[in-house]
């Protein structure tokens, strides 16, 4: 087993991680490394040891991997420099990438995260050019504010009551026997009526923000895999933020080559059943196996487009059609 612990000083605390290199000598080591971020508050081993199994299987495919604990999780202490937790995580991730580049020669990174780890992966991918790919598992809310969280939750409830519960015998039985949550139903109905007559600005604001972040990632030629358990609220949010109609706003080449969405049936949020764990691992490994080819072809397209473009023009960001 060739796995090595590393410690990286960040602010006034230390970040603790493990790197899984592919080759024995640095010269022949690939320059792409997959970084697996924490899932919620679970330490770097990942829920049900998913991160360890993923890292070891990636190495078998010839792809190095690293796992570490962000501030306040697992072995890493909370930094005491007063920075917000998101900024702490951002700087820690940058410092870890710098250390991995210095010690192992990795220059490009794919970030993987579940839930909060997915939020962090998305944020880093939009901010750091070294991040050439992101795999987001059951991710929602991103860096949007609590208004969005409330909106998305109400929208989900409203959709359930209007489109599903209305047509289900079981739901009517619960309603008529007084077992339903009347408060919830009332709120969902009020939300839906309000949306018909005076649509909330929250959705448009969130879409604009998300579109801007996606453009930052895709315009660099980076790739994203969204992976959801069936029924996960994150999937509902993505449909709102980046629904099929909205996808047409990005160039079709970008959508086809750079954005993938996969759904795993019969899986809960943290992939408790081994069957669903294996499903998630298979999809991630398949996506990573084809990553280099996809990435190089996207980059080639960008370069050839850039060659054709007039010298004085700025690169155009991807825009959504209205």
């Amino acid at each position: 087993m060739r796995e090595f612990p590393f410690t990286c000083t960040s602010g006034f605390s230390e970040v603790f991680g493990i790197v899984h290199p592919f080759q024995e000598d640095r010269e022949s080591e690939p320059d792409l490394c997959v970084i697996i971020l924490n899932s919620g508050m679970t330490h770097r081993v990942g829920p049900h040891r998913l991160a360890v199994r993923l890292a070891r299987r990636l190495v078998k495919l010839g792809i190095p991997a690293a796992r570490f604990d962000l501030s306040g999780i697992g072995n890493t202490d909370v930094r005491k420099d007063g920075e917000s937790i998101k900024l702490q995580w951002l700087s820690q991730c940058r410092e870890v990438m710098a250390l991995l580049e210095e010690d192992y020669g990795y220059k490009r990174f794919v970030l993987i995260g579940l839930c909060v780890g997915g939020q962090a992966s998305f944020g880093f991918a939009a901010r750091d050019e070294r991040v050439v790919g992101a795999i987001l598992l059951n991710t929602r809310d991103y860096e949007l504010d609590t208004n969005w969280e409330k909106y998305a939750s109400m929208e989900r409830d409203a959709r359930f009551y209007w489109r599903r519960a209305t047509f289900r015998k079981h739901s009517w039985k619960r309603f008529l026997t007084g077992k339903s949550s009347f408060k919830k139903i009332g709120m969902a109905l009020a939300f839906q009526v309000r949306e018909w007559f005076r649509p909330s600005k929250t959705l448009n604001h969130a879409k604009d923000w998300f579109s801007g972040q996606m453009s930052k990632i895709l315009d660099r030629g980076s790739c994203i895999l969204f992976l959801f358990s069936k029924g996960d609220p994150g999937w509902d949010q993505l449909r709102l933020l980046l629904g099929q109609k909205e996808l047409t706003g990005y160039s079709s080449a970008q959508v086809e080559s750079q954005v993938s969405v996969q759904i795993i049936p019969d899986a809960d949020h943290t992939f408790t059943m081994r069957h669903s764990q294996e499903g998630a691992l298979t999809l991630i490994l398949a996506w990573m196996e084809g990553f280099e080819e996809r990435f190089q072809s996207v980059r080639k397209d960008y370069h050839s487009d850039a060659d054709k473009a007039p010298q004085d023009s700025d690169p155009q960001p991807a825009k959504r059609t209205q």
């Binding site: 069936k230 029924g231 049936p265 019969d266 899986a267 809960d268 059943m273 069957h275 669903s276 294996e278």
Partner: peptide, 8 residues
């Protein structure tokens, strides 16, 4: 929610 959750 997931009626067919399978055992491995």
């Amino acid at each position: 929610v997931h009626r067919d959750m399978k055992e491995f």
